[in-house]
Amino acid sequence: MSTTPHLDALQRDGFVVVRNLLTPAEVEHYRGIATAATTRTRAGDWPHFRTVPKQFPPWPSTPPPASEGGIWGVQHLLHPRMPGREAFARCYFSGSILNVAEELMGVNSNNSKGNQNDEPLVMELFNLLVAPESKDFELRWHRDDVPETATPTEELLQLAAKSPGGRQSHAQYNLALCPDASLVVVPGSHRRARTETERNAGPYEPSLPNQLVVELQPGDAVFYDSNILHRGVYKAKPAGGEESRLTLHGSLGLKTADQEGVSDADAEAKKKVRATAVLQHGVGAWVYREDAAFGIGERAEKMRANLVAMGTGEGVGFSLQG
């Protein structure tokens, strides 16, 4: 039996579903806090959000009215001024999540390189994906760090560079607090260039060959290669009803210095790419502050320090447009 079943699935399919990552009690706990954060943001009392119909950052500073869809995400759950921040931090830095992330990034083997007391993981992003209001919303087919204009040769080179040896330098996940069937993926597409059918398909093509809808129940998580061909399909929140989608969307990184077999030049290039992917969301504007300390343990602070070392985000640009 494999000792790395999550990594095996990620390498084969480009994603892996981990059932019951949270207990029912934890789901209820975090759902209440996430609902409060969403209500606050919908009311205009939290300034960091994702707005309909925009897919990628930067997002507007003012949310559209509910009649136009409103928001589809709440940003910066770990921000010092976010109500419920400590609870969100305990979820983000929990052993259940970090253990899966370590397996996917090969931390045990990579830890043999360098000082054993160094923290190999980097705090990255922790956001909340929610249902838009009054109208459905869809994301177009994309890979997070490979532009749709890339040629087949460029795609293959970039995919290989971003996950050498089949391992990524980061772990990205959706953790559902409500039933969620929003993520649509094409299994195996993280290891190949797009087919002619995929290249010629419309950006919101409802049915690509072999696509799969990832179905999550509360407490389930899907960890996925961010460069698998994927999109999102978000059903509108019922008018006057409870929040129908509350999905914690997080990512954790691996310090490039901890990756075996990566040259200094490649490590620097990977660092710049990852810095753009993370810092484009604005986390560098506050993570270095004194009041950004979590107070929940040494490991959280070391991971935060690793993010601070990536920079403030000024001038890094954006991975994708739209």
Results as ranks from 00 to 15, higher is better:
Glu268Phe: 09
Ser319Trp: 06
Val316Ile: 09
Met303Asp: 00
Glu290Arg: 14
Glu314His: 08
Ala269Pro: 09
Lys270Val: 12
Thr312Val: 08
Arg299Leu: 01
Gly315Thr: 07
Trp286Lys: 07
Gly322Leu: 12
Lys271Cys: 13
Ala300Tyr: 03
Gln321Ser: 10
Val278Gly: 01
Gly297Phe: 03
Thr312Ser: 10
Met310Leu: 12
Phe294His: 11
His281Trp: 14
Tyr288His: 15
Phe294Thr: 13
Val308Thr: 03
Gly315Glu: 02
Glu290Leu: 12
Gly315Pro: 14
Arg289Gln: 11
Ala309Ser: 12
Phe318Lys: 02
Ser319Arg: 12
Glu298Gly: 11
Phe294Leu: 11
Val278Met: 00
Val273Glu: 14
Leu279Val: 04
Leu307Val: 03
Ala275Val: 11
Gly295Tyr: 11
Ala293Trp: 12
Leu279Asn: 10
Ala292Glu: 14
Phe318Gln: 00
Thr276Gly: 09
Gly317Gln: 08
Arg289Trp: 03
Phe318Val: 07
Lys302Trp: 07
Glu268Leu: 02
Ala293Ile: 04
Gln321Trp: 12
Ile296Val: 09
Gly317Phe: 06
Gln280Thr: 09
Lys270Gln: 15
Gly313Ile: 07
Gly317Pro: 08
Val316Arg: 01
Ala275Gln: 14
Gly284Met: 10
Lys271Val: 09
Ala285Gln: 15
Val308Lys: 04
Gln321Arg: 07
Arg304Pro: 00
Lys271Phe: 02
Asp291Arg: 05
Arg299Ser: 13
Asn306Trp: 02
Val308Tyr: 02
Ile296Gln: 00
Ala305Pro: 01
Asn306Met: 01
Ser319Met: 07
Ile296Gly: 00
Asp291Gln: 08
Lys270Glu: 15
Gly284Val: 09
Arg304Asp: 03
Leu320Ser: 02
Val278Ile: 15
Ala309Gln: 06
Asn306Gln: 01
Phe294Glu: 13
Lys272Met: 10
Arg274Ala: 12
Gly315Lys: 03
Gly315Asn: 07
Glu298Cys: 11
Arg304Trp: 02
Lys272Thr: 14
Leu279Thr: 01
Val308Phe: 02
Leu320Glu: 11
Gly322Pro: 05
Trp286Leu: 07
Ser319Cys: 04
Thr276Arg: 15
Gly322Ala: 15
Ala309Trp: 04
Ala269Met: 10
Ala305Asp: 11
Val308Asn: 05
Phe318Gly: 08
Ala285Glu: 14
Glu298Trp: 08
Trp286Met: 04
Thr312Arg: 12
Lys271Ser: 15
Phe318Tyr: 12
Tyr288Ala: 15
Leu307Pro: 02
Leu320Tyr: 09
Lys272Ile: 07
Thr312Lys: 12
Trp286Val: 03
His281Gly: 10
Gly295Thr: 12
Val283Lys: 11
Met303His: 06
Ile296Thr: 04
Arg274His: 08
Thr312Gly: 06
Val273His: 13
Val278Ser: 07
Ala309Tyr: 04
Ala300Phe: 00
Leu307Phe: 00
Gly284Trp: 01
Ala309Thr: 00
Gly284Thr: 10
Leu279Pro: 13
Gly315Ser: 13
Ala285Pro: 13
Gly322Tyr: 05
Asp291Trp: 05
Glu301Ala: 02
Lys272Glu: 14
Val287Ala: 11
Glu298Lys: 08
Thr312Gln: 12
Glu314Pro: 13
Tyr288Gly: 15
Glu301Asp: 11
Gly315Leu: 05
Gly284Gln: 13
Leu279Lys: 04
Ala292Val: 07
Val316Tyr: 01
Val278His: 04
His281Cys: 14
